[in-house]
């Protein structure tokens, strides 16, 4: 308890600094601009669909046949085909159970927005928070003031870590809430109880729907947010490490962005390079496991969680080791 009493003021300091730097305002502002754009885009898609299909079932049927056409083409790479095959089986399942997977409502929009945002958009927001956490103090020279106070260095980094975790969590929650509120104004605020299927188990190229079960969409959204939090925290821990190691904030953002983007590209090429599944950024799209499509064959949710945990813990160890030992020369 006594140790906590000493840590709380430090955590307050770090939280206050991120707040006063207006980083979180920037994130909220970005969300306030992006979400309405996507809401409008979704609205246009819905209108087109309504014109083309009187019934959503027709739409599903057409989508299935489209996918099946691509499956017969020779020019499509194998892992695309595999994911298409899985998608076809899921769509068939929705069709058989009379569930409209794309019913336009606030919760459905939020669900798909969050799952699309997990590989690039959330990492970007996290980098806005984490990248200058330590390197910024070096650039401004305030690190000298910070480290010459009678406080152990690990406590300072720990308080930065706590403040960062707090803002990352807040970002995930605020994104979901803003998304629901803004899209709900157009699509309506319902959809919490709509059944969504999850628990698909993939064996090779076939989806085993034996474990698939319907859960209320609200619960699905909650699970999704949890997984997004895990992947966002991994990015945050890595960004914190880079921020400790690299003096310049710009360099640390570029390094992290490169890692994240190359991960998404690599997951499309992974049929020939299986070891790519050990790269953290290939594992960021955890939400896909809920919907039943792994980025690389043979990957499971458990596998991805373990890989992300390894990356996170390693970067924590490196951060704390370097931060407590390093000489501050400038």
């Amino acid at each position: 308890m006594k140790a906590l009493d000493r840590l709380l003021p430090l955590i307050q300091n770090e939280t206050l600094k991120i707040w006063k730097k207006k980083r979180f305002f920037v994130i909220v502002l970005v969300l306030m601009i992006i979400i309405p754009i996507f809401t409008y885009a979704q609205h246009r898609i819905d209108e087109t669909n309504k014109k083309n299909f009187k019934d959503w079932r027709n739409e599903l049927v057409q989508q299935i046949s489209e996918y099946q056409n691509t499956l017969s083409s020779d020019r499509i790479p194998e892992e695309w085909k595999r994911s298409r095959r899985i998608a076809v089986q899921q769509l068939q399942y929705y069709l058989d159970h009379d569930v409209n997977p794309n019913s336009p409502d606030g919760v459905t929009f939020t669900r798909s927005f969050l799952s699309n945002a997990v590989t690039l958009f959330f990492p970007l927001l996290v980098l806005a928070l984490a990248s200058d956490l330590v390197s910024g103090e070096r650039t401004s020279g305030t690190i000298k003031m910070l480290l010459t106070r009678p406080v152990r260095r690990w406590k300072i980094l720990f308080s930065k870590l706590v403040a960062l975790s707090f803002y990352v969590s807040l970002t995930v929650v605020v994104s979901a809430v803003l998304c629901y509120l803004i899209s709900g104004a157009v699509f309506g605020y319902n959809g919490w109880g709509m059944p969504v299927f999850t628990g698909f188990v993939i064996h090779g190229s076939s989806v085993e729907s034996g474990f698939a079960h319907a859960i209320p969409q609200g619960l699905y959204l909650l699970m999704e947010a949890g997984l997004i939090w895990v992947s966002a925290m991994t990015v945050a821990l890595l960004a914190l490490m880079v921020s400790v190691l690299v003096r310049s904030t710009a360099a640390s953002i570029v390094a992290m962005m490169a890692a994240v983007i190359s991960g998404t590209i690599l997951s499309n090429m992974a049929s020939s390079w299986q070891s790519a599944k050990f790269i953290f950024s290939v594992n960021l799209q955890l939400t896909n496991y809920l919907a039943g499509s792994p980025p690389i064959t043979g990957m499971t949710l458990g596998f991805s969680l373990v890989i992300l945990a390894c990356w996170g813990i390693t970067s924590l160890i490196v951060s704390f080791f370097v931060f407590t030992k390093q000489d501050i020369l400038n």
Binding site: P9, L10, Q12, N13, L16, K17, K20, K21, K22, S140, G141, T142, K144, M145, L146, R149, P150, V151
Partner: peptide
């Protein structure tokens, strides 16, 4: 050095919390 985005008072408060 000081945090330029904080006021003088907030800077002093910041360092006071470390003591």
């Amino acid at each position: 050095e000081a945090y330029s985005y904080l006021t003088g008072w907030e800077n002093l408060e910041h360092f006071a919390r470390m003591l």
